[in-house]
Design a protein around this nucleic acid. Structure first.
Lengths: 199, 199
DNA sequence: ATAGTCTACGCACGACCGTGCTATTTTGTC
DNA sequence: GACAAAATAGCACGGTCGTGCGTAGACTAT
């Protein structure tokens, strides 16, 4: 029984998942309702449900999509910069731009759902946790490269720096969304650049 | 079943609001349901509803209670330290302890709801916004005092420092809840202390 | 003692939710 | 062109939600 996937279905899936990721940053991953997604895509509730089989599957698919967007918008562009401090700066700048430009209406998808799912055990939280680990790992990796190249202030531990940057970025995202003030983004950008200067 | 009547309205209100604040840090301010609060307090749904009149009034009351707790647990103890760097450090340490000790099961109430309500306009967001302004203002005020006493590294702008600290603390809260790793708290504590040293 | 307010409950309504079940149409494969 | 499977819609179910309504006990003021 070849379980083949049809192209029209594939297009619908993409449309749905795109809307779902956007909605989730505003309504939350839990508040993401199938009816809401159906309305946003012009499909029927059953249509949306049938393509994913369960709400959790849709939520997981939304995370997949958000990850794709994050890689496209933040990570991939930063790979143009050489590993180390410069890439570190490019990653942080890319993140702040991606929040500021409202790639998702509710700011960073992962900051949003991390805050929501943090205290709620389950598969969704585990998934977000892994994604976050990859992100901090990427920062730490470049912090290590920067240290090896002696591009950091002395006494700065790479893992510590990665944690610090990640916390600053998450905090910037949340404060920016609450106050709708771009100066918050620019203030944190400034703080990060200062932190990444050697002197 | 004995119908407990007129036990004391004020006591009931307090019990309800206390439960509501705790629940909101886990389920979210929107996910906070009257039924859930009723179950947690052993009251009937109508009992809870009647005491507050609307869901939003209950949510506002939960914010009031959270503020009370925050002042008690974080701000008041820090007032023992002299204004300036020391109080700044005491405020940050107090915050990190309050998160780590799980005064609320879902970490910092205001970080939680700021992340949730950030992209959702309305009275609740406005309220959270004001509370957050007071907190950052308190940090800024002490940063100014610290600068005046020449207790900061030169070139550090008080407002900028306050924003930075606030972002770090929020980020620490969220990361800690997601990973359940106290080292995250201690790492950020360390970063903050380093930032507050003059040399 | 009586009236009136506050507390607390049971009940029911309409809205929305996730999810099955059953058609009908569309598509890709032989 | 036949046929199976996928895609999508319609509908109904049980559940939860916020909220009104009616009621009854308990405290307060007269």
């Amino acid at each position: 029984m070849p379980r083949r996937v049809r192209s029209d279905g594939e297009w619908s899936r993409k449309t749905i998942v795109d809307a779902a990721a956007r909605i989730a940053t505003v309504e939350g991953l839990e508040g993401l309702s199938i009816a809401r997604v159906a309305e946003a895509t012009g499909m029927s509730k059953s249509g949306v449900f049938g393509l994913f089989g369960s709400k959790q599957a849709l939520q997981m698919a939304a995370i997949d999509e958000a990850r794709r967007v994050f890689v496209d918008e933040v990570i991939r562009p930063a790979l143009d910069a050489p590993a180390g401090v410069q890439r570190l700066a490019a990653l942080c700048d890319g993140f702040l731009d991606y929040v500021r430009e409202r790639v998702f209406p509710g700011g960073c998808f992962f900051a949003s759902v991390a805050a929501e799912m943090g205290p709620r055990p389950g598969d969704l939280r585990d998934r977000i946790r892994e994604e976050q680990k990859l992100w901090v790992g990427l920062l730490a990796e470049n912090a290590r490269a920067a240290k090896k190249a002696d591009d950091l202030q002395k006494g700065v531990e790479p893992g510590q720096l990665a944690l610090e940057l990640s916390a600053l970025l998450t905090g910037a995202d949340i404060a920016f969304l609450l106050h709708e003030d771009p100066q918050i983004i620019e203030g944190v950008r400034n703080a990060i650049h200062t932190r990444l200067r050697r002197t």
